[in-house]
Design a protein around this nucleic acid. Structure first.
Length: 783
DNA sequence: ATGGGGCTGCTTTTT
DNA sequence: GCAGCCCCAT
């Protein structure tokens, strides 16, 4: 057999093996070495490609491109290959044994995703496709992959392996403490914004020293630099890391320890990154550290679905992949297997208005399908009623509740929909997001107890429970205790143990040693008892159970939540080969409730568009398509608007068969009413794909304006201003009066209030909706 | 040390 | 419109 012929037959065999894929998908599957960028449009079968590509790596290795051995085929092999290619044989094991070359070992593959859910799905599909051969492949989130590395290696950075992972709430508490210690008022500098500043510094791999260096001429940044530095010191003393540290410390570990880096480079020879458009600078750096030697990095993403810029994601990573990796292969998956053409054309037309994109057009062979409905409602209540009617209609004609999803820009919008569902007799719905299970106070308290048992240095969580339930260790004592602990360089728990010997703590010492003994006893039990039993002991010994029992109905509700935590624990203990307290804490600290989504239960899904990414539904409603809502009133720059538009693109492409977009002329939100014109995105939909419906004319509804609104100056003038109750008339402007503004156009005054020598007006502009502005600043004209 | 009342604040949020 | 947080009064 000639080499050419062998190569041809071999390709036919592989094509047959991967016959469920389209040719472009197969190309991606065959490209296993070197940098590869897969631009995967929504619904283009990206996970299928990833799974098949891994299968190809493990089963066939370089078979596709490696032609060696064509001249030394065993007797019958050639006939077999021809038979296999023409579907006369199904013996893929034999195919493998003939053509496979340098197969990749499963444990040399690291697949990184963003959510636990995506990681779980990937793992499951790999298992299904590869069966036992998938053993050893690491499919994990960025965070869990890094935690795994840190647990082994972090001692070289001075932490110990049992470190605690702080969530946002813990971090804010710690920031507050630091600010108090530094005498920085939280009025001037809100702790949350300090945290987000520190977080974005970490996301662009900017450490404490570098941050301080870059802050020389900015007072605010100087303050933050001080807080950042103390915050980091306290984290270290508590043997704790925050979410961003997980990645940052891993990168630092690699950069400062070439031998460790070398080890992981040899381990993870093949790296796959899903949702690459959502990676931030530090994640990029991590990937490039790991892959720069082998160059085997495959990233999958869709620049049009990048919606997490506000969390530090930089679309640059995907846009400049080809520049960073010179020999990168780029493959575009544009065939969509999810939606009808009307939906896809709508999505294409909307996203076309963005400038910074790679450019692609989704298509399908599923046919045009129904037109997209654009519904105009009078207010949010009738909008919600319309949604419910249509859901009921779809269920009446044979659909399931779970075929339906209602998507909105922000969680606060869920209420109106929920009310209407209840009113319409639909109890089969589930609201995702909002208050999360692990955010509940009692759950956090119990987790704090467990954290202290696991890591005695964890001072933030110790402080959370030291007097919960009340045991007479008040704020005064805690502050004293903390100061002593800091000056002695010992953990608070340790100081409590020896409190009897410290004159300053004499008064509270018996209660402190008692608390110490309780924790110590529980720690000993934690080494002997199964986790759920440890939890029982904890509830008993700490007095938490008694406290809840005395709280009546609310207490028993809380106890129920704790029991739910207990069953999560039991489940964990069952599934894990070596269950441990620290393992459990780690798992739940990296867990969110959208992971809970259960395709089994037949319920309407209510969620933000952000949470809907990656999901699909037959029948999708996007409500609140209004200026100032979607796009949000906070998005003023063109870049912000583009991100909103991508969000709109994500929303549209969730729909498989039917899509309804709606807006309300009048909406009650956060306790006041606003009149907003339809979203500009509605105006970008192609006429031939939509049907208009609804209760026009809503109050003051006009054509969507597509012009950008506002300027940096106005943004500055408006930021930080808060609306207080609707107030009485003042001498200059009165409610109901018509006014003109040189940028926003004409509008009606909704409310007026005095504010620092000026007037804060709330005005419903005809063209761009309700805005709050300062009268003097805005140079309003009376009409 | 604790409990209640008023004031603030508020997109989105993979981990 | 609501919840969480801070402060104050007890």
């Amino acid at each position: 057999m000639t080499e050419k012929e062998y190569s041809r037959i071999k390709a036919l065999c592989l094509d047959r093996y991967f016959c469920r894929l389209n040719p472009v998908q197969r190309e991606a599957v065959y490209t296993i070495n070197g940098p590869l960028l897969i631009l995967a449009g929504a619904g283009s079968g990206k996970t299928t490609v990833l799974v098949n590509r891994v299968a190809n790596m493990v089963y066939f290795g370089n078979a596709y491109s490696d032609n060696t051995g064509y001249d030394s085929l065993a007797d019958g092999d050639e006939a077999f290959l021809r038979a296999y290619a023409s579907q006369e044989s199904d013996d893929s094991d034999r195919l493998r044994s003939i053509i496979a070359r340098d197969c990749v070992k499963p444990w040399n593959i690291l697949a990184i995703t963003f959510t636990n859910k995506a990681a779980g799905e990937l793992r499951e599909r790999l298992d299904r496709m590869l069966q036992g051969a998938a053993q050893g492949i690491v499919a994990a989130t960025f965070h869990s992959a890094c935690v795994r590395i840190l647990r082994r290696e972090i001692s070289v950075l001075g932490y110990t392996g049992s470190f605690t992972i702080y969530d946002t709430d813990d971090s804010v508490r710690l920031i507050k403490d630091c600010m108090k210690e530094l005498n920085i008022s939280d009025k001037m500098l809100p702790p949350r914004s300090v945290l987000s500043e520190i977080s974005s510094a970490k996301e662009s791999s900017c450490g404490v020293d570098e941050y301080a260096r870059l802050s020389a001429d900015d007072y605010r940044r100087q303050l933050i630099a001080k807080i950042y530095s103390l915050y980091q010191k306290r984290l270290f003393e508590s043997n704790s890391v925050d979410f961003d540290d997980i990645i940052l410390l891993t990168v630092r570990l690699f950069e400062e320890n070439p031998d460790i880096l070398q080890h992981y480079r040899r381990l993870y020879k093949y790296i796959l990154v899903d949702e690459y458009q959502d990676t931030n600078t530090i994640q990029y750096r991590l990937c490039s550290l790991l892959s720069s030697e082998n160059g085997n990095i495959c990233v999958v993403g869709d620049d049009d679905q990048s919606i997490y810029k506000f969390r530090g994601a930089t679309i640059e990573n995907i846009l400049s992949f080809e520049k960073r990796y010179k020999n990168a292969v780029v493959i575009r998956l544009e065939q969509n297997y999810r939606s009808t053409q009307n939906i896809l054309t709508s999505a294409n037309e909307v996203i076309k208005n963005n400038r910074g994109r790679k450019g692609k057009r989704l298509w399908t062979d599923l046919g045009d399908g129904e037109r997209v409905t654009v519904f105009s409602a009078e207010d949010e209540r009738s909008e919600a009623r319309m949604v419910v009617e249509r859901i009921l209609e779809s269920v009446r004609s044979g659909g399931r509740y779970s075929d339906n999803a209602v998507l909105y820009r922000m969680n606060a919008q869920s209420n109106a929909i929920e009310q209407a569902l209840i009113a319409g007799g639909v109890s089969a719905y589930r609201v995702y997001g909002g208050v999360k299970f692990y955010d509940r106070k009692e759950v956090k308290d119990i987790i704090a107890y467990l954290s202290v048992i696991n890591n005695g240095s964890d001072s933030v969580r110790l402080k959370r429970i030291i007097n919960e339930p009340k045991r007479g260790i008040g704020q005064q004592s805690v502050e004293l205790l903390e100061r002593i602990s800091q000056s002695l360089g010992e953990s608070m728990l340790e100081v409590m143990r020896t409190s009897a010997e410290l004159p300053m703590l004499q008064r509270a010492s018996s209660r402190m040693t008692e608390f110490y003994s309780m924790i110590e006893a529980l720690r000993e039990k934690s080494e002997l008892l199964p986790l759920p039993e440890l939890l029982d002991e904890l509830l008993e010994d700490s007095g938490y159970l008694d406290m809840l029992k005395s709280q009546g109905d609310e207490g028993s509700q809380r106890l129920e939540n704790i029991n739910e935590l207990k069953s999560t624990m039991a489940k964990y203990a069952e599934n894990e080969s070596e269950p441990s307290l620290s393992g459990f804490l780690e798992e739940i600290s990296l867990y969110t409730d959208i992971d809970e989504m259960n395709p089994e239960d037949d319920a309407v899904s209510l969620m933000t568009i952000h949470s809907a990414k990656g999901l699909e539904f037959n029948n999708v409603f996007v409500v609140g398509m209004e200026e100032n809502i979607f796009p949000s009133s906070r998005s003023l720059s063109e870049a912000d608007i583009e991100e909103e538009r991508r969000l709109c693109y994500v929303a549209i492409t969730r729909a498989r068969r039917r899509l309804t977009l709606s807006h309300a002329g009048k909406r009650m939100l956060f306790g006041n009413t606003s009149f907003n014109p339809p979203s500009r995105f509605l105006g970008e939909l192609p006429r031939e794909c939509i049907t208009k419906a609804g209760e026009e004319p809503a109050v003051r509804s006009r054509e969507a304006s597509s012009s950008g609104s506002g300027t940096a100056g106005f943004r500055a003038a408006m930021s930080g201003l808060k609306d207080k109750r609707v107030s009485q008339q003042t001498q200059e402007f009165s409610v109901g009066e018509r006014v003109g503004h040189n940028i926003f156009g004409e509008g009606t005054v909704l409310s007026v209030m005095k504010m620092s020598g000026d007037l804060l007006l709330e005005i419903a502009f005809d063209r761009i909706g309700t805005k709050r502005i300062m009268a003097n600043f805005a140079r309003l004209k009376k009409l």
